[in-house]
């Protein structure tokens, strides 16, 4: 099947989802990110790679952290960055998604970084660019609905590789609200593609998608059982804003059963790392003593995220579209 993210040479043209991305491309992104981590230590924290390129951060849904890390990544590559908080602008006046895109193309955009509440919005934009012969413009999915958040999944893989080196002997647990989490979907795809032998999802039945086993994971409804002997604990945020209706009792009760405390973490391997995509709800899904503890790698995740986004943007910008050779 044709993968809409790849050009006819099999190179990455857009980054829309990790699902279906070949292992060698994921590995190439992680390898490319490594030298970018060193740029932050220089006198001049900038590389000239994307000089003269215009990158539009199109955020139809608020996200300060993701937008900021994309902005820093683009600026460290010397690109010109325009931030559009679309939820408060033209779309509020009734403009359609593709009209917004067409207008920005007319302003000579080279890349769109798209965050949208609707699953598939970045894919729609990529299809539209291809159909209108403008596939030299690249699309990066910065989170779409419940579907995918590929750069978060990739930075998580970078973090795991940094601390654990090899994926093929790991047991990784993903804990919490998998149902509403695009991050969890991207993590599961990436982990299985990279050859992690055991991926566990741990959560209450109401917050796990039905038939989640079909993604190749082991399901646990008891956090103590699920955390036993794991190398990596990936916490998810309780998506308060995505909950309608009574899927949960109260945050206090959730914390009691599902919150990661030092006592529960002690069931994992002694050298297990704790990850969280942020923003954290302390005292809900994670206890402060764990979030600030020695096993937490939550702040390094943020730093690595910039390097991974630099790698993705520079790999995409180096592709010239399928119309040229």
């Amino acid at each position: 099947m044709h993968n809409p993210q790849l050009n006819k040479h099999g190179e990455l043209q857009h980054l829309l989802t990790i699902d279906g991305l070949p292992r060698d491309i994921i590995t190439a992104i992680l390898d490319t990110a490594a030298p970018f981590t060193e740029v932050a230590e220089r006198e001049v924290k900038k590389l000239p790679l994307l000089r003269g390129k215009s990158i539009f951060n199109l955020f139809f849904e608020n996200s300060t952290r993701t937008r900021t890390t994309f902005e820093i990544a683009a600026k460290r590559l010397s690109a010109d960055v325009v931030n559009l908080n679309v939820s408060t602008s033209s779309t509020a006046k009734g403009e359609s998604l593709l009209d917004t895109v067409d207008n920005l193309c007319a302003m000579q955009a080279d890349m769109f970084v798209v965050r949208h509440a609707a699953s598939g919005a970045p894919f729609l934009i990529a299809q539209h660019l291809l159909a209108t012969g403008r596939d030299h413009i690249h699309v990066v999915n910065a989170g779409d609905g419940r579907h995918a958040h590929p750069t978060q999944g990739l930075l998580d893989m970078y973090t795991i590789r940094h601390y654990k080196r090899d994926f093929t002997n790991l047991t990784v647990a993903i804990v919490g609200d998998v149902l509403h989490s695009r991050v969890a979907r991207s993590q599961i795809s990436a982990l299985t593609t990279l050859g992690v032998p055991e991926v566990r999802v741990i959560g209450p039945k109401t917050l796990l998608p039905t038939e989640v086993e079909r993604m190749g994971v082991r399901v646990f409804h008891d956090i103590r059982e699920g955390l036993k002997g794991v190398d990596v604990v990936m916490m998810l945020r309780l998506q308060n804003e995505r909950m309608n209706g009574a899927l949960l009792p109260t945050p206090q009760e959730y914390y009691k059963v599902w919150g990661l405390t030092a006592e529960k973490l002690a069931l994992a391997k002694p050298d297990a790392i704790v990850m969280h995509p942020g923003p954290m709800n302390r005292g809900v899904e994670i206890d402060s003593s764990v979030a600030d503890g020695t096993q937490a790698v939550i702040l390094p995740q943020v730093t690595f995220g910039i390097a991974v986004r630099m790698a993705v943007m520079s790999m995409l910008a180096g592709q010239q579209g399928s119309n040229k050779q």
Partner: peptide, 20 residues
Amino acid sequence: SFYRDDFGSKGLHPQPKRTE
């Protein structure tokens, strides 16, 4: 790799090494 003048035509060189 990150400073080459042929990035626009050739793209990013695969597997860049660390500058130290």
